[in-house]
Every structure is written in structure tokens, then in C-alpha cells.
């Protein structure tokens, strides 16, 4: 085990509110997720037209990742691995694809929907946006699993597979959604420990 890893930043998006490093930076109550997501996009001046083609899971992951990673504009390639997890996999979009093939009369599967029927696609979107040629891994758990993410992020840095790891939970299930992403690296305010990750996650 090593003690010199830190949580360099964390972002929570839930209940139509965006928290960045614990502070509320945006909220828009009373709208559905796509409308709220668009309000986050506008609020932070993001200019990336592909955003509007994404499914809800990718939009959520993209926004949380953008808030955490955009501060670093150096041209040097960053070796940031992505380790995300959730409960619902891509089921939110799987149901849309299923609807398009259930009835013979309205059978019309779409490639633009089908491509999002994999949970790791949201990591592909983040990789393209931030030009990350690093490792991606998507895990499914019943609930947020701080212990596992801690072990896995540490192994990637110890094994020199990555210098930083963008970790967390990104879940969309019908009307319910939640993102909690954090960056693990060699500097930061909080020690990278299971207790600290759990505390930051619960301080929603």
C-alpha cells in the first residue's frame, strides 16, 4: 500500500445540482435530465456539438469529466486512466433499442442508439474529448464500491499504467441519475483512502 496518492478533485451531479469539490456550482430544479444537462453545458460554456448526439449516460459522464479535467490545458498528452462503475450498465438506452425491435410493425433498430448499448461508450466519449489514449475499464456493482475503486486505481498508478485515474460512479436508470467522479493523482487535498472516498461520496 502507498500513502502518497491523493484525490485531486471531485464532482457530484444529482438532483439537478452540480457540486464541484464540494461546492454547488450550478442548479436547475424542476426539469428533466436532458434539459438539465443542456443547462450545465451552457452554464460552463462548453462548445462540443457531439454532446447532443450522446445518450443520457454519456452526457452525464461527459459533463462531470469536463468539469474535472478541463482545467488542464497543456498540450502534453496526459496519461489519465478511466475507471467507472454503475448499477444499471447501459440499460437506460438498452430499453430504447429494445422498443425499436419489439413490434414487427414498428421494427426500426438504429445504429445511433445501438452504439450506446454498452456502458463503456461514455468513456470513449471522454477519451475523444480529452484525447486520452489510456486504459478504460467499466465495472458493474450493486452499489457504489469505494473499496474496489480504491484498489483498482492504486494498482493502475503503482503498475505505472497511468499517472492519474478518473474514477467513480455514473448511473442513469429511467428518471434517476447520479454521477460521482473524482481524480486520483500524486497531489491534492484529500488522501486517497477508502474512508475519504466514502466520505466525499456521502457528502452529496
Amino acid at each position: 500500500m502507498i500513502n502518497d496518492l491523493f484525490i485531486t478533485g471531485h464532482c457530484h451531479i444529482r438532483d439537478n445540482t452540480v457540486f464541484l469539490n464540494g461546492a454547488v456550482v450550478h442548479e436547475q430544479k424542476g426539469t428533466d435530465f436532458p434539459t438539465f444537462a443542456k443547462s450545465v453545458y451552457q452554464k460552463f460554456g462548453i462548445d462540443y456539438s457531439k454532446f447532443f448526439k450522446m445518450d443520457n449516460l454519456s452526457k452525464l459522464a461527459f459533463l462531470a469529466a469536463d468539469l474535472l479535467l478541463k482545467g488542464n490545458n497543456s498540450k502534453e498528452e496526459r496519461n489519465i486512466a478511466l475507471v467507472l462503475s454503475n448499477r444499471t450498465s447501459s440499460l437506460d438506452t438498452d430499453r430504447r433499442h429494445q422498443e425499436s425491435i419489439t413490434n414487427k410493425d414498428s421494427y426500426f433498430p438504429s445504429p445511433a442508439v445501438f452504439v450506446y448499448t454498452l456502458p463503456n461508450i461514455c468513456m470513449g466519449e471522454i477519451s475523444i474529448r480529452h484525447q486520452l489514449h489510456s486504459e478504460n475499464a467499466f465495472f458493474i456493482f450493486e452499489k457504489f464500491n469505494a473499496e474496489y475503486l480504491h484498489t483498482y486505481a492504486e494498482s493502475l498508478i503503482l503498475d505505472k499504467k497511468a499517472e492519474q485515474v478518473l474514477c467513480g460512479w455514473i448511473d442513469v436508470d429511467n428518471e434517476k441519475y447520479e454521477a460521482f467522479l473524482y481524480v486520483v493523482g500524486k497531489s491534492g487535498t484529500f488522501t486517497h483512502s477508502i474512508a475519504q472516498i466514502t466520505r466525499l461520496y456521502q457528502n452529496k
Partner: peptide, 11 residues
Amino acid sequence: ESSCNDANHIS
């Protein structure tokens, strides 16, 4: 072992 993203296209 190693895994690397293309950072190019999703499909």
C-alpha cells in the same frame, strides 16, 4: 498487458 483507447471514434 496493456489497454489503450483510440480517442478517435465511438463505433
